[in-house]
Design a protein around this nucleic acid. Structure first.
Lengths: 343, 343
DNA sequence: AATTAGCACTCACTTAGGTGGAGTGCTAAC
DNA sequence: GTTAGCACTCCACCTAAGTGAGTGCTAATT
């Protein structure tokens, strides 16, 4: 049965109060603090109903109620009014992000900003470099046994790796290869460099041994470039949450946050569909994450999802605020990236 | 008055016991666990003397004794026998570090290894890129308004930054500049590129406007390259220490560890002189660090200190082990870097 | 003179019992 | 359907007594 209007208002009030105080909420508190026009006894009856339906739970008899995961879910889906970011905050975000031209810096700044504005722990997954457009790909001979692989990918990636060679690469050879790379590869994506393209390149070139060596170097250099890096910031904010006064919980969580792979998986799970997404408590299947919530949003380039940003906090987090912040940052990232592509 | 032999043995026993148990040590415990050939009453008398001299302190009457900072200092300087790393561990370190050619990776691996082997929090300061030898410095035009600055510095740095130009840089111009850069700059240090050298370069070249733009780009690109980065790992290990069961202490410490600048300053303070160094508790002047100890060692290239590694733990840390680990990593880094230079 | 056994004393830590208060559920009146 | 009133529940906090590890001192022993 769907909740009637009054039950919704009571559930909303309880949720707000619990988010603010982190304490179980009693009927009298609601009656006093929120003017719902009914007495505490009435609220008490409604609360009993809400508990029966699974929206609330009681830590113990004679304590107040707290929203269950189901309660928070309903709050997020149907009750909350996301707070808009202030224009000042939006300005801050733009200023912070606009100052950088390289992806690492942009993402790093984003995650800092996200943690700062939300006051929770923030995560950002950088775009997968494989789906960016190659703008520059060169081999620069350093000495007899080393060359430098230089790679610029739009948007914003500039990487260079030292790669060992089996035989010296002479300058003329390098420039031949670079010219060839530019003709064949610029404008493509790294992901496109499959075996068919490699075969095609092999055929087209006269000096097959040289090209083979070059492709080998390319492959080895690319292997070392991190694909989808996860950036993390604001871990300390977790310690300020009363639910993490227990050191063991903190330890479990920090262990998860320290493991880039797990983090990446969690973020990706949450990003199966694009757009904003909220995962609440037990909805999260990851060990040690059941007492957390995760708010994520994806950012895009040319209508294509290329990465995601997220905030991790206790289930009791301030969803109205966090949703706004997460969406704000994701949106700023999208516009910033598409702007930087256009120029 | 210097300590007699028996007092030393008692102080050493107490320190060992306290390092292992984190509990105040009583006279009977010492008599039982360490066969010093005297009764607990004698030890009691000696302990009273040691307390009087400031080597021990008592949390409260009727508790056991714990070493004071002065006691730990004496232990570190005169009593302890640093444990050697096992050959297996040395092998592990070498394998872990040898696999990498770029400084970021080497340092990252070092700090991981250090945290893993010590089971405390580890810090490594990467070498200052300014004092490495320039092997390659190039400008690569990307489009009308961007060039890529590519910089390879020995040992192990390969950086590239996108820099905005005020006017397009044509390929021929770029290669003239690169040729010039190579002739003038390779083999030098970034730190050497002072105004005198810049002036010299200005004079030598025909197209002054071009060179001026190039130097401008160079300066702007270099400004964005991180100078001496601090790497951190094993923060979680702190939470396993009983002295950090208090969340507030943890928070204070994490705040310090989160601030790269503070960390860098602490590491550098400790590195005024080269070689291994131990800073114990109150010897450390930094806010919130008075309950910690820091073991550092520097690593070198061509007899020149270029960076440092360190371990942060409670004053009660296992100095005998940690000193060995820190020195082991520092030494491995030194040999690895000088090897990679020689080839 | 140094060492040791013995003993009274101290003080944190644990346990149990007692109290207050916030909150509930139920019932009867409105 | 709503509300006032009341008995009941249970946590959180406090206090008091008991426990035990450890000390300092003294007197006896080597």
């Amino acid at each position: 049965m769907p909740l009637d209007e009054r039950k919704k208002r009571i559930l909303k009030a309880i949720t707000h109060d619990y988010i603010n105080t982190a304490e179980p909420v009693g009927s009298r508190t609601i009656a006093r603090r929120y003017s719902l026009g009914v007495s505490s006894a009435t609220i008490r009856n409604e609360m009993a109903d809400l508990e029966e339906d699974g929206y609330l739970e009681q830590p113990h008899t004679s304590a107040g109620r707290i929203p269950s995961d189901k309660g928070f879910r309903f709050f997020v889906d149907a009750l909350m009014d996301p707070k808009e970011l202030s224009t000042e905050e939006i300005r801050q975000i733009h200023i912070a992000l606009r100052g950088h031209r390289q992806m690492e810096d942009i993402v790093h700044e984003s995650v800092r900003m996200l943690a700062f504005l939300s006051q929770y722990t923030a995560v950002v997954v950088a775009p997968n470099i494989s789906y960016g457009v190659i703008r520059c790909l060169q081999l620069i001979p350093l000495d007899e046994s080393n060359v430098l692989l230089v790679l610029v990918v739009d948007p914003g990636f500039a990487h260079s790796r030292i790669v060992e060679t089996t035989r010296p690469l002479r300058p003329q050879e390098a420039s031949r290869i670079n010219y060839f790379f530019e003709r064949k590869l610029s404008g493509m994506m790294l992901a496109d460099i499959g075996s068919s393209l490699v075969g095609e390149m092999r055929e087209e070139v006269t000096d097959e041994a040289l090209m083979s060596e070059a492709l080998n170097l390319l492959a080895r250099g690319l292997r070392n470039i991190k694909q989808e890096q996860v950036y993390l910031d604001g871990t300390i904010h977790l310690l300020n949450q009363p639910e993490f006064r227990d050191l063991n919980k903190v330890k479990v969580l920090l262990n998860v946050l320290d493991d880039e792979k797990i983090l990446w998986r969690i973020l990706n799970d949450a990003l199966a569909q694009s757009g904003r997404q909220v995962t609440i408590g037990s909805e999260n299947l990851h060990e040690g994450f059941q007492e957390c919530s995760l708010v994520t949003a994806s950012y895009e380039l040319d209508g294509q999802v290329i990465g995601s940003v997220g905030v991790i906090g206790p289930t009791r987090m301030d969803y109205e605020r966090v949703v706004a912040v997460v969406e704000g940052i994701a949106c700023s990232l999208s516009t910033l990236l598409s702007d930087s592509m256009r120029h």
